[in-house]
Structures are given as structure tokens and as C-alpha cells.
Design a binder for these strands. Structure first.
Lengths: 331, 331
DNA sequence: TCTTGGCATGCACACGTTTGCATGCCAGCA
DNA sequence: TGCTGGCATGCAAACGTGTGCATGCCAAGA
């Protein structure tokens, strides 16, 4: 009933006594028109409230001004900063962002990609759980940027904790720790594999024994439960896949009567919790917002006719020592 | 170069030896077709990976199959569950969700609405900070659903803590508490005003003195800092606007050498942190996912020709007592 | 004056759907 | 058998825009 039909390009053209194509050009290719004409068209347009119909435009150009973003889990504090900055950057470029959550399920992720494909201009896949093969196929038919997934031939932006992890291990050694534990997160996560192997390598180089433990769901309570295994492995320092697990670990240690960092040092990763734990969590701070921005900028660039090699950006995180790490206990 | 053209309805029709309109109907109006035909079309469609082009569809029908969702702050743990379920429900209905973050700024929120208007079919505004007048104007020109904002004449779904707050106050009284504090959150937030006045009323009815304190940014560190004010007001029980502030309060008390819940009881709201604090935070659990679902379902319903009165849903939360609340200290 | 060429604008088709109407078929009834 | 009517499907016209090509104008050069 309150059906309001928006003014169209032909109405505006008729009103001005010009051809529809002239109006079109006034918006999309003003250089081809007399500046005076452009002015006249634009003025009248805003007067009658004309605004280009996105769907009609998308239909003919194939560019929808919409980009899709898929994350495994919106509720994970790792993603909101990426998401937020991605949206903001998209907005600056005149793009809209459509969002979906794959729930960490590769099958569902693939399905979401399928649904999005016809209506988006490009895709950002954050921490994708899809096999490389699928990713390549997707990237072939649609401009795609990966976040935290390193696949040759596809533009990608990675937030890396590698150097900071090296530094962390070195710091632990210097502080007298003689045994280390790493608590892994979701096994399908690329970051998890990356971090685990880096810590392992670094520990080996320092001759530091390392126990490998798991919190596959990446939850607080898993972290809590695995604390026991850390102590029985004899480790005095533990690096967790992320802050959530680290937080659980701290609580687990406290519940077992151990003091952090006096009895055991705990290092998180991602720095999403910052000072909201007690003691304040040492962690590795990542440039998540930068990743969000870079992802859509790269997408935009790679959507063009550029035949340049697919970009690969690596954003190094930095180690932030707070109260949850310290010297090894005297024994 | 890597331009991949998606299969179209006519290609599919040719492949099947039927008319394009038949294919179209197989998706939009299957009742008009022989069930067998519908099957055949759908089977072939998924075989060759055909998926309807939304833009073409939107152009002719005027319905874009896109709904917009605006939140004040994606990073606030209150919103992801809403967001997530809203997206999922939208997906079930064949809709896409475009997302934006207003950063809590009304001006920016208005601007976002303006940008979205021409391309969405409806709008969900969560915890909007816009004046009522603006909201009414928006709702007039576009199907709109409010979440946690109560404006007469606009469909809305509210997650309410009212009854649970009453129960909480009664519980405090029963447990011997003689003085209460309420720590408010963002002053522009409708929920904040709602909760504050409810607690105030409930306390008055019980003859319980109540101190009103503020953490206007709604952050952990503000909660931490305001803990001091709580104790100097002599309160032995404190209700916080949300879990984040409550978490800060707990840490603040611990830093001041007070034990929770032995010396002071802390109650959060929203139940977003659940067991990740120590002691586990008592809180008020809200049906956020239900709100997300209801919001887009309501939007969908109100987009139809229904002239029914705008719906108003109120989802009551429930009190969950964990380890951060207990009996008043002996004195 | 005639030609050339650049520049501003008009013409008309294409994009992939939906949908009202037309068509053809077959069953049921007189 | 002939007629009616319902049902499954085909036909073709939109929806609002972008864009290659054609057109017409005017200035500059010969």
C-alpha cells in the first residue's frame, strides 16, 4: 500500500529533455559529457530524489557493489575487529558487506559461497576451513581474498605470530624455564598448525623440551581442563593457541592452587582479552583491523584487470608481556 | 580474463528442453508445475550449479532479498548471538544480510540507514541510538524492526531483564543484604534506562537503599575503577548493566583485597561471559538468539501486505546464580 | 568551400528474471 | 462425438540500467 516507486533514469531524462544514456553517463562517466550538462542532470536528480537502481546496474555490469565475508564464528572475539574494519573500508569504497557465519563447518562454508556467488562482486574468506582445491576453484570464478589462510595463487593477508612466538620462547628460556607446553586449538585452523610448528621449531632450537596438548574446541572450559595436563607434563611455561584457551588455563591453574605467574607462566595469542583477566594476560597482539582493511583493499585491487601476481601480505604481531608471565619458579 | 559466467535460466531451460519460465516457476511457484517437472529442473540445476541471479530477480520484483542490520558495536559480546541467528534465519528465508556498525554514533547510524535504504528490503536496527522521530520516519518508508528499543508503532522485539531483576533484588534482600548499588552503562542505551529504573523501583519496594553509579563506556576498566565507589557507598551487593562491567567490578574488588562473593555480591546481565570469570559470574541470561530469529521473522511478516498492528515481543530473561553472589557478610 | 576529425549526445540492444496471457492437451459430461 | 474446463507449459513483454555504435555539430586546416 505504501508502495513508493522510485524515480527512474528515463523519467529524469524526459524531465530534462535528454536521452536516458546521458543521465546514465552523468553518473558513471561524467568525463564524456559537457560539465554543464552533468551539473544540470545531477541537480535535477537530487531535486526529485533520483538514486541509481543498484540491481539494474548490477545486472548489466556484473558488478554488484557487494562483497561477501565469511567467518567461522562471529562470536569468537578474533573476528569482530576484522569484520568491523572490513565493513568500514568497504563503505569507504562504496561497497556493502554481506556477512555469513559458517559455524566452522566446511560443507556449510561451501554452501554459503555458492549462495553468495551470484550476487557478490568478490569474496573475503576469513580463516577458511575449506580444502585448498575448493579454494582454488572458488578463486577462479570470483575475485577472492583469504585471511589467515596461505594458498599459493590466491591473494591473501595473514596475521602472523611467528616472530613474536620466537621472541616469547627466547624470553622464557632467558627467564629460566626448562620445560614448555603448547596447547593447540581447532585442528582445522591454519593458524593453529602455523603456530604449533613455529613454537615447536623455536623450542627445538633452544633445546627446550615441549609438550604438545590440545583444546580442539578452542573453549575456555577446555583450557581449564587441560591445565592439569600441563602441570603433570612438568612444564613451567605454557603457550596457548589463543587468549580464550589461555584464560581457561589461568583459571585452571588457580583452581589447582597454583599461582600465575609465580608457579607457571601463561602466554595467550591474539590479544583479544587484554587486561580482562587476572593477572592481566600476556599475549601476542595482532593487527586485526589492519587485516580487515587490507583484505577488502586487496579485493578491490584484484577485481580490476590487473594481471599482477596475487599479493601475499603478512602482518607480524608483537609480543605484549603483562602479568601472566615471569621467571621460572625456583626449585 | 578469469571472468566466469554463471549458468543462466535459459541455458538450464535449453538443456532440459523446456521454457525458461518453467525453470523459473520450479523455484518460485512450484505448485503450478508437475511435481515431476519440478524435480527434474531442480536436479539438473544443482547438477550444473545454477543459482538464481538475485539482481535480475530484484529488478523485476522490486524485492532485493537483502535485509540490513545495524548494531552499535559488533565487538560487544551482546550482539554476535543476535547477529548470528538473524543471519541464519535470513538464510533460511532466502535472504542475505548486510551488516554495519554504527560505532554507537547516532549520526553515523542515520547515514548508514540512508546508504542501505535503496538496496535493502527491510531493516533491523539493534539497540538503536536514534531519536524516536527519526525511527518513525525510517519505518514509514521501509519495513523496519527494532531490537531492544521500544517505540510505539514500530514492530519491535525486546529482550527484557525486568522480572529477573526483581527476582535478583528479592534474593539479595532474603540473603541479608541491606544496601545495593547499580552500575549503569551507556546512557544512550534504552536497555540501560530500562534496567536502572527497574532495579530502582524494585529496591524501593523492598525498602533497600540503592546507590546509582556509572560506567558510561561500558568497559571492563570502567567497571574496575568504579568498584572503589561501590564499597565507599557501603553496598554489599551490586548489579551491573552488563557482564563486561560486572567482570571489571569483580577484578576491582579483588585488587582492593575484597573477596567475591564473601564480602560483596556481584550480578551481571546478558550472560555473555558465563563461566569465564572467577568466581563464575551470576548473571541474567537473555534469549539473544531468539531475538535475532524473531527480528527477521517479524520483518518478513511485516513486509507483507498485512495491515495488522505492529507487533511487540518481549523475551524475558532468567536469573542464573553462580558463584559471584551469596549471603551478605556478617558484620 | 570541402574535408577531416573530435566531441557531445542519441539509439537500441543486452543483462537474467518474473508473470499475465495464450496455447494445447486431456478428462468428463451431455 | 462435441463441448467445456482445468491444468501444465510456452511466449513475450517488461524491470532500469550501461555501453558500443551511429549521428550531427562545429572548428581547424588545406
Amino acid at each position: 500500500m505504501n508502495r513508493y516507486k522510485a524515480p527512474t533514469i528515463v523519467q529524469l531524462a524526459k524531465l530534462l529533455g535528454v536521452a536516458p544514456s546521458t543521465v546514465s553517463r552523468a553518473f558513471t562517466d561524467p568525463g564524456k559529457l559537457l560539465p554543464e550538462t552533468v551539473d544540470r542532470v545531477r541537480r535535477k536528480a537530487s531535486e526529485i530524489g533520483y538514486v541509481p537502481n543498484n540491481h539494474a546496474r548490477a545486472l548489466i555490469t556484473g558488478r554488484s557493489s557487494i562483497v561477501g565475508l565469511i567467518v567461522p564464528d562471529i562470536a569468537n572475539p578474533f573476528f569482530p575487529p576484522i569484520l568491523r574494519q572490513a565493513q568500514r573500508t568497504a563503505e569507504e569504497q562504496g561497497l556493502s558487506l554481506i556477512l555469513a557465519d559458517s559455524d566452522g563447518d566446511p560443507e556449510r562454508e561451501l554452501q554459503l559461497v555458492g549462495r553468495m556467488t551470484p550476487q557478490v562482486e568478490g569474496l573475503v574468506l576469513a580463516a577458511s576451513r575449506l580444502p585448498e582445491k575448493s579454494l582454488v576453484t572458488i578463486a577462479e570464478r570470483l575475485p577472492t581474498v583469504l585471511v589467515n589462510r596461505d594458498v599459493e595463487g590466491i591473494p591473501r593477508v595473514l596475521v602472523s605470530a611467528d616472530e613474536a612466538l620466537d621472541l616469547a620462547v627466547a624470553t622464557f628460556v632467558r627467564d629460566g624455564h626448562r620445560s614448555l607446553a603448547y596447547v593447540g586449538g581447532p585442528p582445522e585452523s591454519w593458524s593453529n598448525a602455523q603456530r604449533a610448528s613455529r613454537v615447536e621449531r623455536s623450542a627445538r632450537e633452544h633445546g627446550l623440551p615441549m609438550a604438545r596438548l590440545e583444546a580442539p574446541g578452542g573453549t575456555y572450559s577446555e583450557g581449564f581442563d587441560v591445565a592439569r595436563a600441563v602441570t603433570s607434563a612438568g612444564a613451567t611455561a605454557v603457550i596457548a593457541f589463543d587468549d580464550v584457551i589461555a584464560h581457561g588455563l589461568i583459571s585452571g591453574f588457580q583452581a589447582a592452587g597454583l599461582s600465575v605467574p609465580h608457579d607457571v607462566s601463561v602466554l595467550g595469542c591474539d590479544d583479544t582479552l587484554s587486561t580482562t583477566t587476572y593477572p592481566p594476560l600476556s599475549s601476542i597482539s595482532l593487527d586485526l583491523r589492519g587485516a580487515g582493511r587490507l583484505a577488502v583493499e586487496t579485493l578491490r585491487a584484484s577485481a580490476g584487470p590487473s594481471a599482477a601476481a596475487p599479493a601475499r601480505f603478512e602482518l607480524e604481531g608483537k609480543l605484549v608481556l603483562r602479568g601472566s608471565t615471569g621467571r621460572a619458579p625456583e626449585r
